[in-house]
């Protein structure tokens, strides 16, 4: 009998103790970020999507269109095309990532021999269509250069006599 009442008392006390915790936290400052009005800065290693590093000296990207990133990507989402600008040098004429397939593994960033890729801190990456998440890195680079007032890197075009890329290559399904 005594045990019975004791249990009730202890139980009741435990509920009050739990309440005390909530009440204590009630008076503490809010911990959540009030999103549209308040935004976080991304951490330095935050993986948005990949983008070109802008070399401070040359004021352009460092990509040599070697296709290493293209080959290692698990989802094969990088659509890359290189153009020979002179005897030795090759430059990308097309570098589009289909971001919706990206698993943010970082293999492309690590494999690049010239360290031409880095992570952007873009986090608003939703869209209404599939095309919204296709990011053209060369254009993005131009936008960034424009914002800094630097000369834009021209996007080289494949020479007309070169055969046009086969259709199948671009389709990513």
């Amino acid at each position: 009998m005594i045990n019975y009442f004791k249990e009730i008392l202890v139980g009741f006390w435990s509920l009050l103790a739990g309440m005390a915790v909530t009440i204590r936290y009630f008076t503490k400052p809010i911990v959540t970020v009030q999103y549209p009005r308040q935004k976080l800065t991304m951490s330095p290693r935050y993986r948005g999507h990949t983008e070109f590093v802008i070399d401070e000296e040359t004021r352009t990207h460092r990509c040599i269109a070697c296709e290493m990133c293209n080959r290692i990507c698990p989802s094969q989402l990088i659509s890359l095309q290189g153009v020979k600008v002179d005897a030795k040098k090759k430059l990308p004429s097309r570098y589009i990532i289909a971001y919706q397939y990206c698993s943010l593994c970082g293999l492309c960033v690590e494999v690049c021999p010239t360290k031409a890729l880095k992570w952007s801190d873009e986090y608003l990456l939703c869209g209404f269509t599939r095309e919204d998440s296709e990011i053209d890195l060369l254009r993005r680079l131009q936008d960034q250069q424009y914002a800094k007032g630097w000369p834009l890197t021209p996007i080289p075009r494949p020479k007309p006599e070169e055969p046009a890329p086969a259709k199948g290559e671009e389709v990513k399904e």
Binding site: G11, F12, S14, G18, A20, V21, T22
Partner: peptide
């Protein structure tokens, strides 16, 4: 306090 000791 909140969970482990809670009677419920």
């Amino acid at each position: 306090n909140l969970v482990t000791k809670n009677v419920i």
